[in-house]
């Protein structure tokens, strides 16, 4: 897929994808959001902050191409250009993988800032995939952010953790510590939403979540089989053929870049009577 790179000076926006709780879809969302941004022609880089676990490169399907990583760059063992991996599907997309052999203490505030500043001079969007938790790694991922996408599942503990993260975003980040700076623009992305279970009263509704978090809604990604399939083959879901989840991510990214898109909660198409009778998986 070839996209026309934008010729204007780079926007240099840093977006952190965070959640507090693990397993809610941060890495999947990071992959999908960065790929969708790149598809729209924005020069985009996605950074894996989950030092020691390294999942993003697998989701992006480039784990065999990793030579140098984020930590090498921070420690001056490699140049940024050597560590950046250009995506083979969308040429405006790059990946900065992380180290699997180091731990999160290898991230220093100065090192992260230096790398981000270098990236800002070349990219429109710098997507930071935060590790779970609220410890050092997550704080490093969010510290220099301009915008935050807080990924939440419609489930109480996930929502509470997201609330905690929103508190940190508004108190322990560079924008919060700089007097007079505009606060981080935080938006919530609800993932693994299942309309059927909401209808049965088994799952929190979008309104319930928003009532607690009190931040704007970026999008609602339905629970979808396409997600796991795309992850397993190493393709961001938005590049893996049409699906309800891909559509939801595309919409969310349009909103992220400032386009007004009507909020629609698309469910996976329910199997018809015929399909149900013959038990064919969709």
């Amino acid at each position: 897929m070839t996209t026309e790179p934008k010729k204007n000076p780079p926007l240099g926006r840093v977006i952190v994808i965070t959640s507090g709780k693990g397993g809610v879809g941060k890495t999947t969302s990071s992959a999908a959001i960065s790929a969708a941004l790149a598809k729209q022609g924005f020069r985009t880089v996605v950074i894996d902050f989950d030092v020691g676990l390294r999942n993003l490169d697998m989701t992006m399907g480039c784990e065999r191409r990793v030579v140098f990583d984020f930590i090498n760059v921070i420690q001056g063992d490699a140049k940024l250009k050597q560590a950046l991996i250009k995506d083979k599907r969308v040429d405006t997309l790059s990946i900065l993988p992380t180290s699997q052999t180091r731990d999160k203490d290898a991230l220093t505030k100065e090192g992260v800032e230096k790398v981000l500043n270098e990236l800002k001079a070349e990219f429109d969007y710098i997507v930071c995939d935060s590790p779970a938790g609220i410890e050092h790694g997550a704080q490093m991922a969010m510290h220099f952010a301009d915008e935050a996408v807080v990924v939440t599942n419609p489930e109480v503990s996930s929502v509470r953790d997201s609330d905690r993260v929103l508190g940190l975003l508004s108190s322990q980040t560079k924008r919060a510590e700089t007097e007079g700076a505009e606060p981080i623009k935080a938006q919530v992305l609800i993932t693994r939403y299942d309309q059927e279970r909401v209808d049965r009263g088994e799952m929190m509704t979008v309104d319930d979540v928003l009532e607690i978090l009190a931040v704007p809604l970026l999008g609602v990604v339905p629970e979808s089989k396409a997600i796991l399939k795309a992850s397993n083959v190493g393709t961001p879901v938005v590049l893996d053929g049409p699906s309800a989840a891909a559509q939801a991510y595309e919409d969310a990214v349009s909103r992220l870049t400032g386009t007004q898109v009507e909020m629609r909660i698309v469910g996976e198409r329910r199997p018809g009577l015929f399909q149900r009778l013959f038990g064919r998986a969709s």
Partner: peptide, 11 residues
């Protein structure tokens, strides 16, 4: 405007 917790573990 934003209440801060007292220590800054990140710094």
């Amino acid at each position: 405007r934003y209440a801060r917790t007292r220590h800054d573990p990140a710094s």
